[in-house]
């Protein structure tokens, strides 16, 4: 088969898989019990989702590949910082963890308790 016909199909498949991960992230936001667990799915299932989606576009349209790689790098370097800051802000604002949470070492350490964390 010609490369010209294979590449768009391959790129399309990658994009669909990426879109599936984004869908899972959306479902996770609805189903998870508290803000921290929502962040686990909502901000991070999107990493692989966006990477695959963008890569799919880049493969289907090779002349855009340089910009796509830059976009992926941008996501990889900024995404963890925003999710870290969101989680940190939520914790210091005092938003409680969901029922069924096993432990909270950060709150224990701030209260000066010697718990199971050591």
């Amino acid at each position: 088969m010609e490369l010209q016909t294979v590449l768009p199909i391959l790129g399309g498949l990658l994009s669909v898989v990426g879109a599936l991960f984004l869908l899972l992230a959306a479902i996770g936001i609805i189903r998870m019990p508290d803000v921290y667990n929502r962040m686990q799915t909502g901000t991070k299932a999107t990493t692989l989702g966006s990477i695959l989606f963008l890569l799919g576009i880049g493969i289907a349209q090779p002349s855009w590949l340089g910009k796509i790689v830059l976009l992926i790098l941008f996501i990889v370097f900024t995404n963890p910082i925003s999710s870290h800051v969101l989680a940190r802000a939520a914790h210091f604002r005092g938003i409680p963890l969901a029922k069924g949470t096993v432990r909270d070492c950060l709150a224990d350490d701030e209260a000066g308790e010697q718990g199971v964390c050591e």
Binding site: I27, R31, M32, K44, C105, A107
Partner: peptide
């Protein structure tokens, strides 16, 4: 880990044991 979290999201009972560890 993406597949792992995807499995937890789709599971009927949402099998998670969240917590902040050190």
């Amino acid at each position: 880990s993406n597949l792992d979290v995807a499995f937890r999201v789709l599971h009927r009972k949402i099998p998670i044991q969240p917590g902040i560890v050190k």
